[in-house]
Design a protein around this nucleic acid. Structure first.
Lengths: 205, 205
DNA sequence: GTCTATAAGCGGATAGAC
DNA sequence: GTCTATCCGCTTATAGAC
């Protein structure tokens, strides 16, 4: 009996993700989700207190994915290289794509949900710190040029901005979200980092 | 009699902008707008066919602002310099700020309104072309390093991405949208362009 | 756990008086 | 041009049977 419930819960989440990605969280109603899952609205509300609760459930899933991705990436004991960075970018973009409604609506969602604002801010700070830390290590290893704190901050923000919004940029540009166009974001990141490379190491890439 | 109508129309638009900026286009209803203007819902629908019509009316206003801004900027006969670029960025950010609901919801709005998608795509192409053209001229003038077409494209996309999403980035980062933080976006643009400058000209800035 | 039925309210939008 | 009144559909969410 318990097992069936867990599955239904999961199916609601997966269906909601699919519909939200297609039409947005405001357009898609709890009734739509229930219908698409093939259950009654009442049943949906047995598993989730509210629509907001569904969204937060999806975010739990997303965080899980992100956590696993980080483990996978770090456990590879990857060397400090452009390839490593680009690989990370691709992994992150896969998550961004799977939950694309989220980044797409991020500013709006945050604006209308203080709890979400706090929640995202935490992830944001962690990721930004990790990114910055990576860059500092690259710099100390002599791969990137020496930068002061302000320059490091700016570089981190720049990279994170591209990672966060690249899919959105593709969407509004009318470009299809294809492997090739996602690759373009990867190229962009490489260009950004290459421009900070030591002249002595730059020819190697 | 005609005059009063024009004023009401304008008041509806200005009020809608304010409310949309604060709570988003989905949360703010036509009733909210009418109440905030101090008119009846029926009267609002005398001036606008639909809610979508209001949004498009706002965009007409925005385009007007953009057009005037471009005239202002170009008429100054500005020299090719970093300062000119940063000045342009600030002018654009003022418009982005005044109509901030738009860029904030851009991917969602486009998704649910095909006419808007076409409309924005046109602006997008024009601006991207202008940006690219600027960069090519800077390059030909010997201020920027020589780049091939692909590199030029990537640089243009990068600059446009930052311009488009910088305010969004501030919002989701939990940073206040202050003059100082907007300035940070300006700094970022400068860093991006500086990294493409000729070694011989770089020291001048 | 899942269903049916339904409450309660709000949304966009219109008709017709003034 | 503006208002009052109102319709209809849809939305979130709950009550209670099975």
């Amino acid at each position: 009996m318990m097992k069936k419930s867990v599955n239904t819960r999961r199916r609601i989440l997966e269906t909601a993700i699919r519909l939200f990605n297609g039409k947005g969280t405001k357009t898609v109603t709890t009734n739509h989700i229930a219908a698409a899952v093939g259950i009654s609205p009442g049943n949906l509300y047995y598993h989730f207190r509210s629509k907001k609760d569904i969204i937060h459930g999806i975010l739990d899933l997303m965080d899980e994915c992100g956590f696993e991705a980080i483990k996978r990436i770090e456990s590879k004991n990857a060397p400090l290289s452009l390839e490593t960075i680009e690989h990370k970018f691709r992994v992150i973009q896969e998550i961004n794509w799977r939950f694309r409604f989220f980044k797409r609506e991020l500013p709006s969602l945050i604006m209308n949900d203080p709890a979400l604002k706090v929640r995202f801010k935490k992830s944001h700070d962690v990721i930004l710190f990790m990114l910055r830390d990576s860059m500092v290590r690259y710099s100390e290893a002599g791969l990137l040029m020496k930068m002061n704190d302000g320059e490091m901050d700016l570089l981190s923000h720049e990279l994170w901005l591209v990672i966060l919004f690249w899919l959105n940029y593709l969407e509004i540009s009318g470009m299809k979200v294809t492997k090739k166009n996602i690759e373009m974001g990867s190229n962009l990141l490489r260009e950004i980092i290459k421009s900070k490379m030591m002249a002595t190491t730059r020819h190697k890439v």
